[in-house]
Structure formats: C-alpha cells, structure tokens
Design a protein around this nucleic acid. Structure first.
Length: 269
DNA sequence: AGTATCCTGGAA
DNA sequence: TTCCAGGATACT
C-alpha cells in the first residue's frame, strides 16, 4: 500500500502527535517483524521521541540517546496513533506512550521494523535508496541519466527504489499517464522532452497524493486511522476497462514487471 | 529480466 | 476455488 504520499502523510501527523512523548513500554507481538533484532526494544522504554522522519517509503522515529526505530509498511501496514481501546487483529508492535499509543498493524505481515542507532539507520537507508523525488537532487537531468542506462521498461525503473525512492505501483502508473508515456517503453528510448514531462509528472502526482492524504484502495489509513482521499483523483490505476478521462479510450490493464499495470493506449505512447 | 516467495482476506 | 493485492528480495 503505502507509497511516498501515504508515508509522508503519516509522518506529518505523527510529528504533531508523538514528538515529545515518552515511551512507557514496547511490545513485540510478532517477533519476525523485527528485522535486525538485536536484543532489544526494552532499551527504548523511558526514552522520549525527538522527531519523525521519512526516507522513500521508510518512516523512522528518532529517540533520545540517538536511537532510531524505522518502519517499512510493506503492502498493508498501518501505523496509527490512538488512545486506549481494543487492539485490532494483526497488531505486531505496540508502543505505549505517556500520551496514547502507537500501533503497527499489518495483516499480510510484509512490513518490517528496524531498531538501531540513528546513524546506522540513516546509513542503511542511504545505501539502499536513490534520491528523494521531491528534493532538488532529483532533477530532470538526473532522471535522464538513470533512464539512459537501461533497456528495461520505464515502469521498472520508476519502481526501482535505487533509481528513485518512494514510487510504487499506483503513483508510477499515474505519473506515466500524466506524462503520456507507455509503461512498456524501454527506459533508454525516452526523448529529452519526454523525460522532462515524466519528471514533472512524478512530482505532481506525489504532491497531489500528499495533499489528499494518500490513496486508500484497500486498507490504508493515515496515522489517525482515517482513509485517504486520493483514490477519487486517480486517472488510470484501478480503472482497467473504464474510459480514459481524457480521450474516452478504454483503459488497458496488463501485467508488467509482475505488477498490474494500467494505461491509456491512446494517450500513452 | 522475469518469476517465486513471504502472508491474509476479499472478490471473481 | 482461484486470482489478485499500495512491496521487496532471492532465485533461475
């Protein structure tokens, strides 16, 4: 589920809710979600949360003592701040705070949590992720260079977190539609003006996704447990067989890079 | 560069 | 009952 706009939405809300809060107790309810499980989450007890950061689809809590707790939500992960109440099923990590609690809930169990010193976590993320698509480092010429080096379908490159961090299946399909580019095109065949359009489209779809607090197709909710509104604004994702909003041609759904891929065969060349 | 794999549950 | 799903990785 959660791509950059969803994770950024959660981050912004958590900044308001948990920065300054102190951890009372951490309960790992499904051991395998702890990825680099050094011993312990016990060492976090009593520490205050000093910040909430995002890198690509990763979100991490900065904690006193230069510790960091990083989350990747996989396909169906939720990170929700709330008061007491019955705990939903598939809640794998529970952080009790002096104000409310933070729960990590993920029914498909693809999500992961890493605990480490903050430098360790930052290094790990820098090593595996390409530039942030909404930062100046992600320029049109950077994108041009990356695409020029590969014959793979352009969609495969956009999904590659090392090429650019944070795009997933929804926003990739949407960006390619806005740019008018067929997802199957070998990356190196894009002309300079097409790369420019694609670069612009990527930043636009992500910004809109954030403005609408993310896309709730299945079970995504933001950090307050509320669904996102961006599903109402999708052009192609999930619209296979329906008319293109621009030209009326039926949206095609195919399998590409092992993923459902939606595009307009008329608008995208 | 494709595809099997980790999981659960809703839809076809 | 089979297929499919906002992801990533470990294989052929």
């Amino acid at each position: 589920m959660p791509e950059l706009p969803e994770v950024e939405t959660i981050r912004r809300q958590l900044v308001e809710k948990v920065v300054g809060a102190r951890i009372k107790k951490v309960e790992v309810r499904l051991a395998k979600v702890m990825k680099n499980s050094t011993s312990g989450t016990e060492l976090l007890e009593g520490k205050a949360i000093t910040g909430v950061f995002r890198r690509g689809k990763w979100l991490w809590l900065a904690l006193e003592g230069d510790w960091a707790l990083a989350f990747h939500l996989g396909m169906t992960g939720q990170l929700v701040w709330e008061g007491k109440g019955e705990l939903p099923p598939h809640t794998h990590l529970l952080i009790e705070l002096d104000r409310g609690r933070l729960r990590f809930t993920d029914f498909r169990q693809f999500g992961r949590v890493r605990l480490g010193k903050s430098k360790e976590i930052r290094d790990y993320l820098e090593e595996k992720l390409g530039p942030e698509p909404l930062s100046p480092i992600f320029s049109a010429s950077y994108l041009e260079n990356v695409l020029a080096k590969s014959r793979r379908p352009v969609k495969a490159l956009l999904l590659d977190q090392k090429a650019v961090a944070g795009l997933g299946n929804i926003y990739t399909d949407e960006a390619l539609f806005l740019a008018g580019i067929d997802p199957r095109r070998p990356a190196c065949t894009l002309a300079e003006d097409e790369v420019k359009k694609l670069h612009e489209a990527i930043q636009k779809v992500l910004a809109e996704g954030i403005a609408h607090r993310g896309t709730s197709i299945r079970n995504y909710v933001d950090a307050t447990g509320v669904a996102g509104e961006h599903g109402l604004f999708l052009h192609v994702y999930g619209r296979g067989g329906q008319p293109c909003l621009r030209c009326g041609t039926l949206i095609k759904k195919i399998k590409l890079c092992g993923r459902g891929t939606h595009f307009c065969p008329h608008c995208q060349r």
